[in-house]
Design a protein around this nucleic acid. Structure first.
Lengths: 347, 347
DNA sequence: CGCGGGTTTGTAAGCGCATACATGACCCTG
DNA sequence: CAGGGTCATGTATGCGCTTACAAACCCGCG
């Protein structure tokens, strides 16, 4: 009553199980007529090869894995809040890019969000199922990391630096540097505020350093830390602006935000207190999510090639799979400055 | 030189492989001290249980699958166009919802986009790897469907009806019905145009029928088909508006669009020819993607619980996994009318 | 007619784990 | 102190497939 196996098909056709197996693994090595008979018997019986058995016998699973941070689980009430969806934009593109590249290379993709407090277990659980694993922007416990890395190729995407592990990141520093330069040079601003992310976000911190570097280059006063911080959500952006305005003092000419969502929040908050953007204050984001093109005014930002991040992850994993002795690699993907309206560019 | 196995761990600790296996599968059946010794040996050796072997021995993989349509692959130039990302919004929420529910129930999630012309193969390939499979909004070849359905639980999400298969859909008809009622009753419109999707999209067609029903209810003239059709992209929305305006004739008071993206396109096109929304013409969408809240004017729409769709899929698959003889089920998830500015509601 | 060389198929040995069953240690009861 | 019950562990088998190796077959040619 179980599912049919190679044995059933082989018996039906009157060949050995090896022949059946070969029909699937190396069709050319089987005579065309035999192949057809096997395939048609398989169809009649409803035979589907078991990936578990194949994996066990051949020692590869044909699946790659992606672990990403578990963006705060939206409370059950899903109809009401787009909050969950909003936060996810970043990761979704990586997932899609990785899926696309994996499929093109003949691999499947297993995904798993990892709650911060169970990151290790999540990772270990995937490790047994895949041939290679990509870890996205999160803190991964070093102990598990070591164990898993010994077993299969690992690549860290846009997260912390781990000695000995392959790594792909995005040019956060460069991107923010060039965006800030644009504000300083092309628009002539000299009083900018930075709405930062959490201190433990390496990406957000790198962007802040890019911001600092641009000020440094112009010989302007160097802020030691972001003017305010938030958790990278739209709500945080709104709050940050309120805070900044409450604080009084000279109003900045521009708000440089650690990501697009905070920038979108900032736009909303400014609209509510009738501060015109970009007329009275410029606003910029970072990431290049679709949202940025839709808000009004459209958001000047730095586009991160998130899809590419996923694709490169696949390439890197497969390269290491092909040669475990490859030197540890590290790639930095370039970003693109997207000038839209919120900085005062365009009409 | 291969990865360590139960044998290595067992030997190291001086127990049998059965004990090692039990430490992972049913920890309580092993004496606490033995368990600790096994776990620490496993850590030292870098042992990670092989899911393939486990799957083969226990006949379950602990993984669920999701096949979704392959939204037109964005050309390599990824830095420039958000088009790919835009189209994907719909599926991403399903992926996340399904991943979340699967993880909660102790399952992994394997995903695969299926190009329309390779849907069957895609599906078959997944079938060997998972315990249950969800198929999202696409046409799946009946032959493969039969074969696969015989082997494992299958659930069709928001797609065509397949006799004998579990199914979950969204209340497209009801949603569009109530949105259209809102336009007719609350805003007093009586000349509405419908921007439809492709004829082979069951969802888009169901929405159109909901639209018709509302007109019918009011005794208005019943259009036989959408005033124009498009492929559900922003670009298609723009084109549809241009077409409609070119056509001349009395201008409709409102544009009812088959989805949010076309509605967003319509908004852009109307802005370009300086037709005020909602002043001169109302516009509505369908889906409830985050984009809709960000465009200006914000989009009145019908929110689909896409995350729920994914979660329900998991529940349905697990239910059938627990009892293969369950009667074939079909759920319809309710939608929510979201009144925003583009219809004339709100300030 | 036999033989070398290529092609197609069969034989058989695992792959790493789960688990039914057997074993043994230990405790309790009478 | 024998008998029965529990708990912890060991033994042994098989899950469904891949693959090295061996065998069978076919062809043409000397």
């Amino acid at each position: 009553m179980g599912s049919p196996t190679v044995y059933d098909v082989a018996e039906r056709v009157g060949v050995s199980i090896a022949t059946v197996s070969r029909v699937y693994r190396s069709p050319d090595s089987v005579r065309a007529e035999t192949r057809e008979r096997v395939l048609s018997a398989a169809r009649e019986l409803g035979y589907v090869p078991s990936a578990s058995a194949r994996g066990l016998a051949s020692r590869v699973t044909g699946v790659l894995g992606l672990c990403f941070p578990d963006f705060a689980e939206p409370a059950a009430g899903d109809a009401a809040d787009p909050q969950g969806a909003e936060l996810s934009l970043y990761g979704d593109e990586v997932i899609r890019g990785m899926e696309r590249a994996a499929r093109r290379r003949g691999y499947g993709l297993l995904i798993s969000a990892a709650p911060a407090d169970r990151a290790g277990e999540s990772m270990a659980e995937m490790a047994g199922r895949v041939d290679g694993l990509a870890l996205l922007a999160q803190q991964w416990p070093a102990a598990e990391l070591d164990v898993v890395a010994r077993r299969l190729p690992l690549v860290v995407l846009a997260g912390q630096r781990h000695p000995g592990l392959d790594r792909i990141e995005v040019a956060n520093f460069d991107g923010q540097l060039s965006l800030t330069r644009h504000l300083l040079s092309d628009h002539g601003f000299d009083r900018l505020a930075f709405l930062g992310g959490p201190e433990d976000s390496p990406d957000a911190e790198a962007r802040f350093r890019g911001f600092q570097a641009a000020l440094l280059e112009r010989g302007l006063d160097l802020p030691e830390r972001p003017d305010t911080r938030g958790d990278l959500t739209v709500a945080a952006g709104r709050k940050a602006v309120a805070e900044l305005l409450d604080r009084g003092g000279p109003r900045p000419q521009g708000l440089v935000c650690a990501n697009d969502q905070m920038a979108a929040g900032a736009l909303q908050a400014l609209a509510e207190v009738s501060i015109r953007v970009p007329g009275e204050m410029a606003v910029t984001g970072f990431d290049g999510i679709p949202l940025g093109g839709a808000v009004s005014p459209s958001l000047t930002t730095v586009r991160q090639p998130m899809g590419r991040l996923g694709e490169e992850a696949v390439e890197m994993l497969l390269a290491r799979l092909a040669d475990r002795d490859l030197p540890v690699g590290s790639r930095t993907l370039p970003t693109v400055l997207v000038r839209r309206m919120s900085c005062g560019c365009s009409a």
